[in-house]
Structures are given as C-alpha cells and as structure tokens.
Amino acid sequence: MGFQSKGCTLRGTGDKMTEIAVLVKRVPDTNAQILVSGDRVDLSAVKWVMSPYDEFALEAAMLHKEAKGGNVTAITLGNADCDKVLKDAKAVGVDRIIRVWDDSWSELDSNQAQSALANVIRDLGINIVYCGKSAADTGAGSTGPGVAERLGWASASNIIGLEFEDTGVEAMVPAATGNARTGVSLPAVISCDKGFCKPRKPNVKGIMMAKRAQVEVMSSDIPSSSVNIISHSPPPKKAPGQTFEGASEVPRVVAALRNDANVI
C-alpha cells in the first residue's frame, strides 16, 4: 500500500476510471415446467426472470462500484422482451442499461452471441465484467470465459468469494482439492456462483427510476452460425421403478442395488 499512497482513489485521477459491466439474461423461472411441443420447447406459458446467478453478478458489480468507484452498465442480449431484466437491474441502481440486438438476428449460437457481447464491451471501454456462472436455460457457462478470450482478458469462473483491490480483484475459485484464493488483474471477466453476497432488493425510488429509464440498443457484426438446432425433445423416460413399504424392505433394495443394478 505504501508505494501507492498518493492520497488518490481510482476515480477521477490519472488512473483509468473503473468501468464495470454486468451481463444479465432473461430465462424461464427455474420452477417452470418446460414443455416440448412438436419438435421445439414451448415457452409461451412460462414466467420469465433474470437468470438466478446473474443476480449475484449484479450485486458483485454494485459492490465493486461502492468499493472502488466507477459506473455499472447492465448488458443483455436479446429482443425487446428482454428489456425487463435491464429495468430490474436499473431498479437496484446500475447507471446504464444496454440491450445488444439487431432485428435481423434470430437465435444466436455461442460464437455469435459472444462476439456481439465482446464487441459492445470493447466499444464501451469496460474493464471488468461480471456475469453469472451459467444461465438457467442453457446451463452452459460458456459466455464469461468466451467473452474474456475474445477480449484477450483474464477470467475467473464459478467464484464463491470476492474482494476488491485497486488494480484488480481477489476471487475465491473452487478447485478439486479446495478453494484457490486467486488474484485477478483487470481487465477481467468474473463469473459468479451464488452464496458470497446477498442480492439487494430494489426500493420504490429505484423502481420508479427504472420505469423511466431508457434502454440503449446496440448492434454488432457477428460471424455466421455453425450449429444447427435439429430438434428439442422431452428427457428420456425411465422405466417405472419399484416402491417398497417400510424400513424392513431396505435389505431387498440393497440386494437389488448389489445384484441387479451392480452399483454397490
């Protein structure tokens, strides 16, 4: 610390301002039934929410601003239906809300989506991006590391702890043998698991401000798709199981696991 104590903070000094972005995605509520009709999922009746892990990313972005100054921009990718998740982010206090879209786009594959997001993030002069560790629809977890690679940035994924430093963050990253306390220099993309912070709730003033807030729409060049979605199908059905009454039947089940299933 001693070498850096010039009595200045990052904000408004010769140092670059911390420009923080959080990626948020609109997904079906995790309690929703997902129906397949014909050969596509039918999402017409589901309730839509901000993807659960994104709420932790949003909170991390707000905490970062509170600790180190700067601005928070919430970014989503999608058509106008996705404005709601941006307004939800605005209601808890982000400075700017941006939707990345072009009306000529339909469903984008990962290569296209990450390219579009990375291009916009680069143009905005962002130096740290927070996102959820995966979205509740695809469960893929590709966006954070993929965007980082396109930008040539560091990344830490699935983090379960976070401290803010002057030139980066310290993230707790789960590893096979324990947790790695990891220093990450900016610029970087941090993908967040839940549990290390409690997402704030919007207050009335925030909700009113969010109503009036303008969503900025930005577009980008994207590569062509290299994945063809052939169909969606319901999960494979399992053969019906057997149900036994009472603890006295436990030995039968253990025998079946041993002799029929061969799993113990």
Partner: peptide
C-alpha cells in the same frame, strides 16, 4: 468445471462455437 471453461476459451480463440454437456 475447468473442462467447460477451457472449451469456451478454446472455441472463442478459434472463433468457433461451443456445445457444452
């Protein structure tokens, strides 16, 4: 956890798509 992370990075590096899980 790391395999999926790496797959995303490698795909992005080569500007190709990633298909997880």
């Amino acid at each position: 956890q790391n395999g999926k992370d790496l797959a995303s990075r490698l795909a992005a590096r080569r500007s190709i798509s990633v298909v997880q899980d």
